[in-house]
Amino acid sequence: MHHRELRVAAYAVCVRDGQILLARWVARDGGRRWTLPGGGMDHGEDPYDTVVREVDEETGYAVEPRTLLGVDSVLRRHPRRLGTAADHHALRLVYDAAVTGGTLRDEENGSTDKAAWHDLGAVGELDRVELVDTGLRLWRERPPDGHLLP
Rank of each mutant, 00 (worst) to 15 (best):
W25T: 08
G135Y: 02
H88F: 14
A86D: 09
L148A: 01
L75T: 13
V51D: 02
T50A: 11
L120P: 00
A23N: 05
L138A: 01
V71M: 09
G121D: 15
A85H: 14
T103C: 07
V15C: 07
Y11M: 07
L91S: 09
A27S: 12
V74H: 12
Y95M: 04
R92P: 01
R4Q: 15
Q19Y: 04
L131Y: 03
D133V: 06
R81S: 12
E54S: 08
G31C: 08
E57I: 11
V63W: 00
G135F: 03
D49R: 12
L22Y: 03
A62N: 11
V8H: 07
V26M: 04
G31A: 14
R53T: 08
V123K: 02
D133S: 12
V123Q: 03
G44A: 07
P143M: 04
E107M: 10
D49T: 11
R4G: 09
V52M: 08
V94D: 01
R28T: 11
L136H: 01
C14T: 09
R142K: 11
A115C: 06
D17P: 02
R81E: 15
R77F: 13
E54D: 08
L22F: 06
P37E: 02
L75I: 13
S111V: 15
L138Y: 02
R66V: 11
G121Q: 13
G38T: 02
T103S: 11
L148F: 04
R24Y: 05
R32S: 07
G102F: 04
T35W: 03
M1F: 10
L131F: 06
V51L: 05
Y48P: 00
R128E: 05
L120M: 04
A122L: 12
G124N: 06
V74K: 12
A116E: 13
R7M: 10
W117C: 03
R33F: 09
L131D: 08
E125N: 10
I20C: 05
Y11D: 02
G121V: 12
R28Q: 13
D17E: 15
A10D: 01
